[in-house]
Design a binder for these strands. Structure first.
Length: 648
RNA sequence: GGCGGCGUAGCUCAGUUGGUUAGAGCAACCGGUUCAUACCCGGUAGGUCGGCGGUUCGAGUCCGCCCGCCGCUACCA
């Protein structure tokens, strides 16, 4: 069977990876892993685009030999992808000899058969954008309409690719194959673009000394970077080197990219080139939307470019989440919020909300509560004859099918929503069945039955989320003490964990992020979403200044009264004297101290904490106490001091 | 100017071919629960579905016009 061939674009090495290129690559990785989970052999290609004149210039500006510059940048990309758990099979670089051979050969063949012909080109050219502009688009300043950099006048002999000859065939192919260009918006856009009439495109450039030379015509400069770049997808299959064997990989099953390079390049020039070569076309081209930050496009000049690893890193540091799981959390966020038709908003707040809500509270907590009960009630062993109730087993199967369908359609937001339905269903199931009550009633058999459904759900989820969060999937499998993450078809097998199977002790995979509550004024005053700077990683752990400390107002308070908060187990309502002023605070110490035990005692209290409503009581401060394995131990002054004494 | 798309709850978004009281998640509020990571479950509130008009027994959904935003593209300067 042919390998499932999946590609990302090759990335420009001029700037480091950001959340946009990370999205494309992570989507590709998820698709690749999804196919592998389903048993397909996969060939996953990514790489770097190094044959652009712009690359040469940037290297010169930095005073670095160009080859060294591209070597270093290629390594930055490869390193970033590996760190993001991207499991690519090939990392192609357009400076590789095998690629330049392919480019030369394709150029020669098309020239011989008349699809490439010689003409000349005149116009204003932007080196940064690799684009010519019609003189009507240019004003007096002669700067690029897109990037505002100065334009160069070019008048050069030039080879053209006869794109116009393929206009009709391209249109027919797109019309006859709805899956060829996706999503629908991009397909319409492409048809619109073709409908306006395709012009032959220049495929060589003179005046550049970096790139693949035009074969057999040294005076004609180098092959146009787009023509060169697109062919990387062919090179990577071993076309030209492996005889007919390249067909074990070719054509691509799925080519992913940002929406900007789909209609005009991947859906027109690229298939036309393949038609000219007489090669089968890619099965499916998918262009996702872009991230916007604070309603604006990401751009270096705006300083709102996020570096993927640093975003994940800062989450790890803020939450205490282990690095690999923080990386997976980042992958989850990008895929859960992935822009499809239009652009979507990226924000650290959104990331944190997904982390706490979906990952810590839902996925992490479900696993944790299930394993905790298994250990508490059954010594961590799967009870005899446990089976999943038919009703909930049906739901598992149905949701798994929906996830499959959505992932197949590259709709990760939907697929993940469907997967999370399983979590909600088990939480509700626990609530209805209340295994903790069953245990108190002595019905251990039924309780085991109920919890077994949770175990099977966790096992199923580890399989379903593997494409999105591979390391987390592994961690779940480990806590379940399974030898591996189940593959797609195996994951849906019910009752797959045998009786007597010993489970691991649970440890939280996603420690909850303590959210800093902001007052509305603070939220306004704070600079909107301080992006992680690309070049200067935040030093962590970040020391605070004495001024930061001085913002905390801590005083010694005398406890005047204490009473349990109704309908709570852990809370005491304390009435305090903080120096002529009375305060009410709610403290979570009821399990460790009785109310009459602490009345009259003196404790330090953070008095300028924003009030919070807890169980209907306004808590106006926070008691400070030592935390000993989760138990509160009160702190008292060495001798009695006046209420309200400042602690510093 | 043309083409395509978008505008739905405070926020992020779903809404199949027009069909009963317009949905989800988060945030808010209230209640329940205690196995669990201040968790989970339930409920409440919150929308003139950008505006106006039309077709229809019935419009978030179809048509027209307008407003705002985005993408592509043209032309004039």
């Amino acid at each position: 069977m042919k390998r499932y061939y999946i590609t990302t674009p090759i990335y420009y090495v001029n700037s480091a990876p950001h959340i946009g290129t990370a999205l494309t690559t992570i989507v590709a990785d998820a698709c690749a892993r999804f196919q592998k989970q389903r048993g397909r052999e996969v060939y996953f290609l990514t790489g770097t685009d190094e044959n652009a004149p712009k690359v040469h210039r940037v290297a010169q500006e930095r005073g670095v030999p160009t080859q060294q510059f591209v070597d270093e940048m290629a390594e930055v990309f490869a390193h970033t992808w590996r760190a993001l758990h991207i499991e690519y099979d090939v990392f192609i670089r357009t400076t590789e000899a095998r690629h330049t051979r392919v480019v030369s050969e394709v150029f020669r063949r098309l020239r011989e058969q008349g699809d490439i012909y010689k003409g000349s080109y005149q116009g204003w050219y932007c080196i940064a954008c690799e684009t010519f502009f019609a003189s009507s688009k240019i004003d007096q300043s002669r700067t690029c309409p897109d990037c505002s950099k100065p334009l160069e006048w070019r008048d050069e002999p030039c080879y053209y690719f006869r794109l116009s000859a393929y206009e009709a065939r391209l249109r027919e192919h797109i019309l006859a194959n709805p899956q060829f260009v996706q999503p629908e918006v991009r397909r319409n856009e492409t048809l619109g673009f073709i409908g306006e009439g395709l012009q032959d495109v220049a495929v060589s450039r003179t005046g550049a000394d970096w790139g693949v030379p035009v074969p057999d015509d040294p005076d004609s400069g180098v092959v146009y970077v787009w023509f060169d770049a697109l062919l990387n997808y062919l090179t990577a299959t071993g076309w030209l080197e492996r005889g007919e064997n390249y067909l074990d990989t070719w054509p691509p099953d799925l080519q992913l990219m940002g929406k900007d390079i789909l209609p005009r390049f991947h859906a027109t020039i690229w298939p036309a080139m393949l038609m000219a070569l007489g090669l089968p076309l890619p099965e499916r081209l998918y262009g996702h939307g872009w991230w916007i930050v604070n309603q604006q496009k990401m751009s270096k000049s705006l300083g709102n470019v996020y570096a993927p690893l640093e975003v994940a890193q800062s989450l790890a540091q803020a939450s205490g989440c282990e690095q690999p799981y923080a990386i997976d959390a980042f992958r989850y966020y990008l895929l859960r919020e992935m822009p499809t038709d239009s652009d979507a908003e990226f924000s650290l707040e959104g990331f944190e909300a997904r982390y706490n809500g979906d990952l810590a509270n839902d996925l992490g907590n479900l696993l944790h509560r299930t394993l905790s009960m298994m250990h508490r009630y059954f010594g961590g062993r799967v009870p005899q004859d446990a089976r999943v109730d038919a009703s909930i087993a049906d739901l598992f199967a149905q949701q798994a099918a929906r996830v499959t369908e959505a992932f197949e359609a590259v709709d990760y937001p939907r697929g993940l929503r469907e997967a999370w339905q399983i979590i909600g269903a088990v939480n509700r199931y626990y609530d209805e069945q209340a295994p903790w009550t069953l245990m108190k009633q002595g019905n251990a058999e039924r309780a085991g039955q109920v919890l077994y459904a949770g175990l099977i759900a966790a096992r199923l989820l580890s399989g379903l989320i593997e494409p999105v969060m591979p390391q987390v999937a592994r961690a779940i499998a480990q806590q379940l003490n399974l030898s591996a993450v189940p593959c797609w078809s195996d994951a849906t097998v019910m009752n797959a964990i045998p009786s007597g199977h010993l489970l691991q002790e649970p440890t939280p995979i996603f420690p909850r992020l303590q959210t800093k509550t902001k007052t509305p004024t603070e939220a306004q005053a704070a600079p909107a979403a301080t992006p992680t700077p690309l070049k200067e990683p935040k030093p962590m752990p970040e020391p605070i200044t004495i001024d930061d400390f001085k913002r905390l107002q801590i005083r010694i308070a005398t406890i005047k009264a204490a009473e349990p908060v109704p309908k709570s187990n852990k809370l005491l309502k304390l009435t305090l004297d903080v120096g002529g002023e009375e305060r009410t605070i709610v403290a979570g110490i009821a399990e460790d101290y009785a109310p009459d035990q602490i009345v009259g005692k003196q404790i330090p209290v953070l008095v300028n904490l924003q009030p919070a409503l807890i169980r209907g009581i306004v808590s106006e401060g926070m008691m400070l106490a030592a935390d000993v394995d989760g138990k509160a131990v009160l702190l008292h002054p060495d001798r009695a001091v006046p209420s309200g004494s400042v602690v510093r």
